[in-house]
């Protein structure tokens, strides 16, 4: 097994005292000051690579975007030779900045750069809650329409996005649909009964 290389000192999470570094990759460590026992794991972090691309010599392969720079990687999307300036690592694969900026590359890797994941299922749940909470239920028709739109988005997203499918199970889809239908029917029946009562009086 490779020897662990400690880069960052381990501090006690409670009193911030520097802890005695463990001799193995995985060890229990006790703080000498506060007595807190922690389990520490050490890893070998990859060192940051230098960003400066080397100039290409006559026999070197050159970067497709920077013809004067030495190619050091191959883009997993296009198969082009690229230099370290163009190389971007995503999910363990190297892609060129040009490929990621293209529509094909951005579609494929968009989810890796997203700051927010859409969760229409949560909106469906919130609109369903608004339908039953007074005084919002007076506008139940609006919430149900919005909930239905989000429900359709949720089903489509589940079909297209693997990540979303792993987050939202089939049960959520079924329960959401049943509740939408149930509350929609109840709201229509209630509104109908109210209108009838008003007409009678």
């Amino acid at each position: 097994m490779a020897q662990a290389v400690q880069i960052t000192p381990i501090l006690c999470p409670k009193c911030h005292t520097r802890l005695e570094p463990p001799q193995t990759r995985e060890a229990s460590v006790q703080c000498q000051r506060c007595g807190l026992i922690t389990k520490a794991y050490l890893f070998t972090p990859a060192l940051p690579e230098s960003d400066d691309a080397k100039p290409a010599l006559p026999e070197d392969a050159t970067c497709i975007t920077h013809p004067t720079k030495q190619a050091t990687k191959i883009c997993a999307g296009t198969g082009d030779y690229i230099c370290s300036l163009c190389a971007i690592e995503v999910k363990g694969e190297i892609y060129s900045a040009h490929y990621i900026s293209q529509s094909q590359g951005s579609k494929k890797l968009q989810s890796e750069f997203e700051r927010r994941h859409p969760r229409p299922d949560r909106e469906v749940r919130n609109y369903l809650l608004l339908t039953i909470i007074p005084p919002f239920f007076y506008f139940g028709f609006v919430w149900l329409i919005l909930g239905l739109i989000r429900y359709v988005q949720m089903v489509n997203l589940r079909r297209t996005s693997e990540r979303y499918r792993s987050m939202v199970g089939r049960t959520s889809v079924v329960v959401g649909g049943v509740l939408l239908a149930l509350l929609g029917s109840l709201w229509v029946l209630g509104a109908g009964a109210l209108v009838m009562a008003m007409m009678d009086s």
Binding site: K39, F43, P45, H117, E123, N126
Partner: peptide, 20 residues
């Protein structure tokens, strides 16, 4: 409300993990 805010911790330069 309708989305998850995402923060990512890439594993390449993780040096320690402490659990207590």
């Amino acid at each position: 409300w309708g989305s998850d805010r995402v923060r990512r911790v890439l594993f390449d330069r993780v040096s320690t993990l402490v659990v207590w």
